[in-house]
């Protein structure tokens, strides 16, 4: 059976949430981490929160953001899995294309992200990814008989709901209760996750 494996990026493939790391550059890591936590827990709608965070963090030059993201450790077992199952793996992230593109290009798999444009030197969020829609569009391609999704935060819920096998993942921090309710499986360890994914 042909299977697509869809992974959240922040706190799933990366071992840290990316936006608070960028915020450290402006000396507001704690504040953005709080905002990120509130967003992940579903207290603030993801689109509102992302626009606000992009507005603040857009002050950091993109090249510097790339350096920061480059220094964030990736989960090695997930990395190996994505490498081995490159054609079947997808990153599905609400993060901004301008920030995560170099990292995603290095991973070498296909990806879905939120889209931005530059307007008079200002970063403008053009389209915020609905992860559920990303799964639906993947399904419309007709190439995969089964879609597996792995996520941990509020904006992963629609992705998990659309998947055939939904996994709430707590490798970096516990998955929020909403992802557990949307999930078939709860997995807290990267080794257990990758072993199961390979066995499916």
């Amino acid at each position: 059976m042909s299977t697509a494996f869809c992974f959240d990026l922040d706190g799933t493939v990366t071992t840290l949430e990316i936006l608070p790391c960028i915020a450290a550059e402006l000396g507001i890591a704690e504040e953005i981490a709080t905002l990120t936590r509130l967003t992940m827990d579903g207290h603030i709608p993801f689109p509102d929160s992302l626009r606000l965070r992009a507005l603040i963090l857009g002050q950091v030059p993109a090249e510097r953001v790339h350096e920061i993201i480059d220094s964030i450790p990736l989960e090695p077992m997930l990395l190996s899995f994505i490498d081995a199952f490159n054609d079947a793996s997808f990153i599905v992230t609400g993060n901004l294309d301008i920030w995560v593109e170099p990292l995603l290009s290095r991973l070498g798999c296909r990806w879905f992200s939120s889209k931005t444009k530059q307007d008079s030197g200002r970063l403008v969020v053009e389209h915020i990814l609905d992860k559920g829609e990303a799964i639906r569009s993947l399904r419309r391609e007709g190439k995969y008989e089964r879609i597996v999704a792995v996520g941990d935060g509020a904006n992963d819920i629609s992705m998990l709901e659309e998947a055939d096998i939904a996994i709430a993942y707590g490798g970096v921090h516990p998955p929020i209760p909403g992802t557990i309710i949307a999930a078939d499986l709860v997995i807290n360890h990267p080794s257990s996750l990758c072993t199961l994914l390979k066995a499916l």
């Binding site: 999930a183 499986l185 709860v186 807290n188 360890h189 257990s192």
Partner: peptide, 15 residues
């Protein structure tokens, strides 16, 4: 789920 996340993180929980 909470108990396993703290004491047995390696198990897979099936709902």
């Amino acid at each position: 789920i909470d108990y396993c996340s703290r004491h047995h993180p390696e198990v897979v929980i099936v709902r």
